[in-house]
Design a protein around this nucleic acid. Structure first.
Lengths: 204, 204
DNA sequence: CCTGTAAGCGTATGGGGTACGCCTAACAGC
DNA sequence: GCTGTTAGGCGTACCCCATACGCTTACAGG
């Protein structure tokens, strides 16, 4: 038969991710990815329909690293573990975060992850609307926490600037406190607050 | 003196928001905004340094609508009210959500809102690291919930598609349950879970 | 009026995504 | 090995975008 394909979706995603990690999301272009693969720009279109599809490959590549097995302990410990795995995967490619937010609904790996969370929640006694609310609260919390961690406002550059805002004294004070709080601990304690609430709901 | 300015930042933000509301975020361009203001493209640059600054104007315009006064009741009711006001403001311009996520740290209105939340939290007994964690958890939850509400996966088009995923039975079942849950109720109940957890922490 | 200042804008540059069509590499069967 | 077929690789061209630069023009004070 004819000439064999020289690229796999995975190799393409890897190249795109390399561009994003090295030079930021703004540097992602068909040209840059093709160059890193040693091809001309238009050759990429043999493998992806358009830029959006390339972005989806990237997102899936990042989220495919998230394992959904081996979570041990009580249901809340297992939820925590699953959440931390997503956080870790995203943390490996923080520049890709806006892509992940934009394309997460198309990711099979995230669907797999969500199913795993639902297994745990169901085992904990959640069902029907309670379960919907619990799942969405967890996902919202995770999504927002990851976004906050990597895109201000209370975490780094802009936090430092906030410590000087005389007009907002509590904000300045809280920003100072925030600088001393390691991100891991902050994430864990924030999620613990939600899990406390969920535990109350599961007993009701 | 010389010729007077014919535009205000507010009029510019309004025009940009009109483009976004009518034709989506992808339609936002210097040209489209200038056209809506009855000017040539380059005239806009007399008022904003670049596209990023225009986007900041849009974000500030959306968030300036959020009132930080008049919140009544217990501290958790007041936090709920403040959160719902942000959700309502964003809901008025859902297409602008990615911009808000990108530029929220530059918004004075959001700083004002954050200060208001901190006043309530401080009044409830939160201080130091506890307060940092509480604030960040609330903001993360709000940010994530708003994003989930307006950009899938459990809310609309893609939710409907998920009801048919045989490979993920719980996801399909949960998606079906989600379709019957009004967004207002979902938001309120999700935030209530977190507030339950915060209430426990405030008593400790 | 005349002049200085800043508003308004036309043009040009450099980049991006991608439709289209050519050339050619690689394989199957003979 | 020769040949025909198929799809890979890519050059060109188009349109849209942001924006640097410099010209032209409107206005206000002398």
């Amino acid at each position: 038969m004819p000439r064999p394909r020289s690229l796999t979706p995975d190799r393409i995603a890897e190249a795109a991710l390399a561009v994003i990690d090295a030079d930021g999301l703004a540097a992602l272009s068909m040209k840059a990815v093709a160059a890193r693969l040693g091809m001309g720009t238009m050759s990429l279109y043999r493998y992806v329909a358009d830029r959006a599809e390339l972005e989806e490959l990237v997102v899936e590549r990042v989220l495919a690293d998230v394992s959904t097995g081996d979570a041990e302990g009580t249901w809340r410990e297992r939820v925590m573990t699953l959440a931390e795995r997503v956080r870790a995967a995203v943390g490996r490619h923080p520049n890709a975060l806006p892509l992940i937010a934009a394309h997460r609904d198309g990711s099979p790996s995230l669907a797999r992850w969500t199913e795993a969370v639902l297994v745990v929640l169901t085992g904990a006694g959640f069902a029907g609307r309670e379960r919907v609310v619990a799942l969405r609260a967890l996902v919202a919390h995770l999504l927002g926490a990851v976004e906050l961690e990597h895109r201000g406002p209370l975490g780094g550059r802009s936090t430092r600037r906030m410590t000087e805002l005389a007009a907002f004294p509590l904000l300045a004070e809280t920003a100072r406190d925030a600088l001393a709080l390691p991100p891991d601990e902050e994430f864990r304690r924030g999620l613990d607050l939600l899990l406390d609430g969920l535990e109350g709901a599961s007993r009701r």
